[in-house]
Amino acid sequence: MMAPGQIFCVIEPVDMRRGMESLSQWIQTSLGTTPCDGTAYAFSNRSKTRLKLHIWDGTGVWCCQRRLHRGAFVWPRADDRYWVMTQDQWDWLIKGVDWQRLSAPAPAHWHV
């Protein structure tokens, strides 16, 4: 599978029983984009224990699912429909690590 141009984390949870066609239609109608543009679209379930990745590789669609046995994925919170992630943020997210804390500045009241 090729590396995606962008990674969009869809904020709204989806039913993990949805397949490629259903997710492709959701991308078109809800985001107004084409699912065949090289962007990876990541979806989560309500409890954030599963994620599904939908990506076009130039010849077909990949639809992969990942499940955590313990804990939950740290999903972005935003007012928008999706959150654009960097490759580093994505790598940490799929490992179950709080990727939002990796680039957070130290609190101003901390002294060394």
Rank of each mutant, 00 (worst) to 15 (best):
M1K: 06
V14P: 01
P107V: 02
R67A: 15
S47H: 07
G60C: 10
T33H: 11
D15I: 02
S24I: 07
S22K: 01
C9Q: 01
A104D: 01
G71L: 13
M1W: 08
D15N: 12
M16Y: 07
A106C: 12
P4A: 13
R46E: 15
G32D: 01
R66W: 13
G5A: 13
H111Y: 07
A78R: 05
W92A: 03
M2R: 09
P4S: 10
D88C: 03
V84P: 11
W26I: 08
K48L: 06
W62Q: 06
R18A: 13
I7P: 01
E21W: 03
G19Y: 05
L93P: 00
V84M: 14
K48D: 08
I7L: 09
D15T: 03
A42R: 00
L53N: 06
G71M: 10
L102V: 13
M1L: 11
L102C: 13
T86N: 08
G19K: 04
T86K: 04
I94S: 11
P105L: 00
T39G: 10
F43T: 01
M20H: 00
S44E: 05
I11P: 02
A108G: 06
I11N: 05
H111I: 09
D57S: 10
M16T: 10
V74N: 03
K95D: 05
D15S: 10
S30M: 09
L68H: 06
N45R: 01
L23N: 01
E21C: 04
G5I: 14
C9M: 06
Q65H: 10
D80Y: 06
D37G: 04
W110P: 03
R50E: 08
I55E: 00
S30Y: 06
A40P: 02
G60N: 12
Y41M: 07
P76S: 15
I94V: 15
V61R: 00
W26S: 05
R67P: 13
A106K: 00
G5Q: 10
T39F: 07
L93R: 00
T59Q: 12
I27E: 01
M85G: 00
C64L: 14
L51T: 05
R81H: 10
G19D: 12
R50D: 08
Q87I: 02
L68T: 11
V112Y: 07
H109G: 05
W75C: 01
P105W: 00
C63F: 08
D80V: 03
R101L: 15
I7Q: 03
F43K: 03
Q65M: 15
H109Y: 10
M2T: 12
K48P: 02
R81K: 15
D57P: 06
